[in-house]
Computed example of a mutant assay.
Amino acid sequence: MSTKLFITSEGLQQAEENPENRVNPVLKALANFLSYLFHPVFVPLYVIAFILFVEPFLFVGASAQEKILTLGRAFINYTFFPLISVLLLKGLNLISSIKLKERKDRIVPFIVCNIWYFWIWYVWRGLPGVPHHLVVFSLGVFLASSMGLLANIYLKISMHAIALGTATAFLCLLTFDPSSSNITIYLALAIFITGIVGSSRLILSEHTPREYYMGLGVGVLAVLVANLVA
């Protein structure tokens, strides 16, 4: 660990540049658990499962088989392919860690995931029976990932924040749908999850507040743009 010299009223003092973050082990374990539970590769799947099975007003008349097929497509493109891609990149030594701790390690995964995100949006937009809001969400995920790639040039933007910002903004959008039921409680839950996951990332010293807030802004902006152009 590197050190720096500081001039104080008591003279020249030496201090650690990045002092070890002393966190309660239980709190740290909880923060790690939440970080994995709401990992960016899972969040889109949670949202789609929500609108398929919890509040299925967008899929009125759809059979159980059609809903499972839609969820399967979402799993393959939002979870399975991105995970496999990261593992392959690590196997080829194109990234130093599958946790993508370094900003430079995130460039290629962002690009690869954008391919899968673009593909599922492109398929859903031309597929009969797919609700407009689902097309908006899939486009929002693609735009958020694209904006995240650009933002990653300047800072290690939080992928967790991008995913949760996109999900929360989309649920907020659903509350204005005249055919929807009252989902205020779910929107409040999404905001709460976004907050505790953000706290978890800060506890683990994975991001600064600026990086997390920037990620939230990217997610919200992406959904707003998607809603306008989809």
Rank of each mutant, 00 (worst) to 15 (best):
S2K: 15
F6P: 11
T8R: 10
T8Y: 05
G11Y: 03
Q14E: 15
E20N: 07
N21K: 07
L27N: 05
F33C: 09
L34D: 01
L34A: 09
H39T: 05
P44M: 04
I48V: 13
I48W: 08
A49V: 08
I51R: 05
I51S: 06
E55L: 10
L58V: 12
L58K: 08
S63K: 07
A64R: 14
F75P: 07
P82C: 08
G91T: 10
L92T: 12
I95K: 00
S96K: 14
R103L: 07
K104V: 14
F110G: 01
F110V: 07
V112Q: 07
C113Q: 12
V123C: 05
P131G: 08
S138F: 11
V141P: 03
L143E: 01
L149H: 04
L149A: 06
L150E: 05
N152H: 07
M159Y: 08
I162F: 06
I162R: 02
A163H: 01
L164H: 02
T168L: 00
L171F: 09
L171S: 03
L173W: 14
F176I: 12
D177Q: 14
P178G: 03
S180L: 10
T184R: 14
I185R: 13
F192Q: 09
T194C: 12
G195E: 08
V197A: 08
S199N: 15
S200V: 06
R201K: 05
R201A: 00
L202A: 03
L204Y: 00
L204C: 01
E206V: 00
H207V: 00
T208A: 00
Y213L: 13
L216R: 00
G217I: 01
V218Y: 03
L221D: 08
A226V: 04
